[in-house]
Amino acid sequence: MQEPLIKTVDLKKSFGDLTVLDGISVDVYEGEKVVVIGPSGSGKSTFLRCLNLLETPTEGAIFFEGNELTNSSDLEEHRKKMGMVFQHFNLFPHLTVLKNITLAAVEARLAEKKKQKLKITKKEIVAEETERAMKLLARIGLQDKANVYPSTLSGGQKQRIAIVRALAMNPKVMLFDEPTSALDPEMVGEVLSLMKELADEGMTMIVVTHEMRFAREVSTRVLFMDGGKIAAEGPPEEIFGSPKDERLKSFLSKVL
């Protein structure tokens, strides 16, 4: 049996007296598309944000490629391999679209160059990363936006660029935190179809979303969270087709 890409063991998180995560143990294997659903306040986003330690868990452990993250000294190296897409895009408003995409990749390669005393010049690195970024932009049909600033883009364009920005780091897994929740309805489609493309290419994905159709069509496994716990878990056919858990049934009756 292969080792899970991400493994959490009895993950707990509380903010003061409020327990948000109450013991989450999940294994995510390479190539899986895990969709996390659940009512507001069930801890879905916190769970996702714990995976790359944007939130520090109160208890429990997170393993990424077999490395324990919570006391890792190499957290930045691991984070590079975990792309994250936010509800509010979080593009860098003071940088052009192109710079948004290349910034972290260039920095990472400059650090590597310094560490391993590589011969490559900064100029070459920038040129290579720019070329890669342009290819990524071409893929989403936004090459012509390379030199504009994010404030001139639509929500859908911003989110697709945010996805591309994460892809520029060549991540092993993509984490999506309600990527379509802040979008106007007519822009949800373009973002979901890009995500679907990624899924079809075999990208490992963990997606927190309210898009039940996406969950049903794309996911290989659905986690239903409630009250900081995983209340139900299974393939989408089972979760949506024949839900057993009472809370899941009542949740689905509200959202479907």
Partner: peptide, 9 residues
């Protein structure tokens, strides 16, 4: 968060 999630220190 966006910066950190991209692996920047």
């Amino acid at each position: 968060e966006a910066g950190r999630s991209l692996g920047l220190s």
